[in-house]
Design a protein around this nucleic acid. Sequence first.
DNA 1: GAGGACCTTTGCATGAGTGCACAGACTATG
DNA 2: CATAGTCTGTGCACTCATGCAAAGGTCCTC
Lengths: 296, 296
Amino acid sequence: MSAQTMDWSDIPYVLAVCETGSLSGAARYLDVNHSTVFRRIEGVESRLGVTLFERLSHGYVMTAAGEHFYQQGIELKEGVTRIQRELGGQDLRLEGALTVTTTDSLLHRLTPVFLEFQQLYPDVELRLLTDIRRFDLGQMDAEVAIRPTRNPPEHWIGRNLLPIAYAAYAHSNYLQGMAPEEYRWILIDDILNRSPMNRITAEHKAMSAPVIITSSVMGMFDLVRAGMGVAVLPCYMGENTPELARLHEPEPKYNVDLWMLAHPDIRRSARVHAFFEFATARIRDAGPDFSSWKQA
Amino acid sequence: MSAQTMDWSDIPYVLAVCETGSLSGAARYLDVNHSTVFRRIEGVESRLGVTLFERLSHGYVMTAAGEHFYQQGIELKEGVTRIQRELGGQDLRLEGALTVTTTDSLLHRLTPVFLEFQQLYPDVELRLLTDIRRFDLGQMDAEVAIRPTRNPPEHWIGRNLLPIAYAAYAHSNYLQGMAPEEYRWILIDDILNRSPMNRITAEHKAMSAPVIITSSVMGMFDLVRAGMGVAVLPCYMGENTPELARLHEPEPKYNVDLWMLAHPDIRRSARVHAFFEFATARIRDAGPDFSSWKQA
DNA sequence: GAGGACCTTTGCATGAGTGCACAGACTATG
DNA sequence: CATAGTCTGTGCACTCATGCAAAGGTCCTC
């Protein structure tokens, strides 16, 4: 590299000092040592033969040349970020297995996401596990988890996607000519004890109401749609289903956040990273209750 | 730097391969080793999770992603070049006064440096002060000082350029047919008391030797060249002057280091900085006694 | 078919870049 | 006035990027 040629890798250092006003601030921003920033700035100024910053006791202040550099450099930064965003993770040669664990109802509702991802990366072998038992990411059973939770595990990469609401639903035909005390309630087995679904059910179900017990939310959904009774379901299931009627307004206090989780070691994988970013964007774009997606 | 973040310094490598079509071509273009280009491309593709080039037997061909990178990257390159031209090129638009204080003999010997600098920066108004009184940089009388000293001031930016040797010289004609005790000694007035020149003179001059006293080293030099006597001179003056003969080997214990000094506040000035770096390189390249430069 | 010119890829040694630890300065607060 | 928190700046040791040397492949020319 010529003595008079600026090193491209100097640019982020200069921009960081411009934005933070100090070597220390830039070092924190860039996650490097402040002495590295110091030497980089010295090197840039030496090679350009121009002073970019006035050294004051409380930090570095841009000179006119520094201001100029910043204005130009900010555009460069946007350009680099654009390249990264548009190319990063787009490896169309992505292949190998990608294991996602989720609930059966989320699997059902998120089929548009999985479909689009599979079309984009046909060589990736999707493994979509819907075992309702809480799995242990540490055991490497899955690489990504998409689950509602109020207590996401620490030290894991987690994205809070959106809140999930819950309410009671029934077939509109079922509700006609029937008093609430006569409703048959479709319940899930006790594994999700104290869950919002169970708590809302307890609030609305008559004490002696007849019940049907099933082992999955999708089972509940099928039974509700068949007109066999009333069930508390996630609104992303109950809404956008024309034949179902909601019995009451969902209460925000019962909301649970939907999280996407990945173990830090696993996120380095290009396909995991690609999926993580891809699914995050798609789910957040889908709106409340995934209203953009037609209920199957 | 995050594993998934592209390194800015990778960009020129990718662009060079795009433009030349091979690792070897890019290496020549960038003046680096082809193995370096190889590793950089591998690193970028790994971090972005995307393939930028198809590897063919005759070189590297851009993939669609590579084309995309190139289109974006080309604009970045233009941006970087613009910064360099608009800031780095400020050297060539350097203007204003630049005040250098030095000795008269150094001014004499360093004319090649000043000449080249003036040609390079025609808009800079050089002020070359050779007042032999020690000036006070703090008073901002000068921006740069080039002077021999054993005690460079602290807190100032100082470059130790090279050691200066001293010895006695006379015209070769003057020395013929004359005993040392008969030598007329050319002395400088007492301002530089205990200086190496004075100390060497005291060591070689006969106690009752006749003297001529002048007020500058250049005056001494002119008188010596005229054959009027013997004088202790800096070797950078005495050497490379064909008509002068040195009377004895210079003793290293009398050497004094030549320093270039600038006040820290002033070094931020682009033209001071430019001169500082430029002159340092030229003086150090000139060799002992500035032997690369012909004595005027 | 051999040789030359071009290319890519890899192991090893070296030096540049970086982080660490330290020192010093300035400012605000008790 | 002492202390804490922030900052800049530097010497030293270590890590990693780079160049060097080597190996291997393909294509073209004689």
